[in-house]
Design a protein around this nucleic acid. Sequence first.
DNA 1: TATTGTTATACTCTATAACTATA
DNA 2: TATAGTTATAGAGTATAACAATA
Lengths: 148, 148
Amino acid sequence: MSALEDFTGTKTFSGLLGYHLRRASVLVMADLTQALEPLGLKPAEASALFVIAAAGGITQAEIGRILGIQRANMAPLMANLIKRGLVARQAMDGRSQALRLTRAGAAMHRHAMEATQAHEQRLFGHLSQPDRARMIAQLQRLWQSGED
Amino acid sequence: MSALEDFTGTKTFSGLLGYHLRRASVLVMADLTQALEPLGLKPAEASALFVIAAAGGITQAEIGRILGIQRANMAPLMANLIKRGLVARQAMDGRSQALRLTRAGAAMHRHAMEATQAHEQRLFGHLSQPDRARMIAQLQRLWQSGED
DNA sequence: TATTGTTATACTCTATAACTATA
DNA sequence: TATAGTTATAGAGTATAACAATA
């Protein structure tokens, strides 16, 4: 056991769930970023595609609320997806625009979902299905408790 | 159930552990940042104090390796803690310097640990002790698998 | 009055490169 | 050659403020 493992294994951090949550999240995001890079997608862009695929006709402001992304930051993100022909707009009323996947966007969505599932399997595959489900439920309750 | 909860509750994201890990981590870091703000500490600074308290005489490069912080980013962080009189340096050899908490630093460390424990209790107190221990063990194995 | 979409901008965090002094 | 500490800097992600158009 190296000196580094020794320290991180002491009571200094071993009792702090938030610390391990953060370190794990950093690792997972880095791996997901790599997994999506061949598709030319960033995690936030892939997430937006996932939401549109599940809820065609949704507005970008609503996607932002679901994903925790500011309206101001959704604008360039969505402009990029539209410019690349993955998402199409359709006027609902004078200020809202319904978003749908194009054919290319639907294909990209499938590839992104496959890459994401493979990534999840790679990182979390060693966990049993009940362990995974329990952790998801606990984490979801946690972050949704901060949603108002 | 609102439209937002409905979407985040669908199979789109509910099966993705990485997504919930990320959302939870963001919430936890925001809460910890607030909890430490009255002390004038940022999470990274508090973590450095924790490491020094547990391992007096350690160098800042080693702290960086433990916490996953680049050497280049440790320099201004540690300079700030020293300028505030929380940490003192002591030459080991011509290039390495042993770090120790000053009296003020030890007091700050206690306050930071108390604030952190209260924060953890506030966010994770609803989890049973076995649940908490299991989650910590699983997350730790996960992020440490990416350490080389 | 509130909301959508947008632009501009600032701030924080993190990563890279380069340098010196020393081992 | 490798490491400690430092500086400068660039990039990404996120936050705030303001605006026009519309509900």
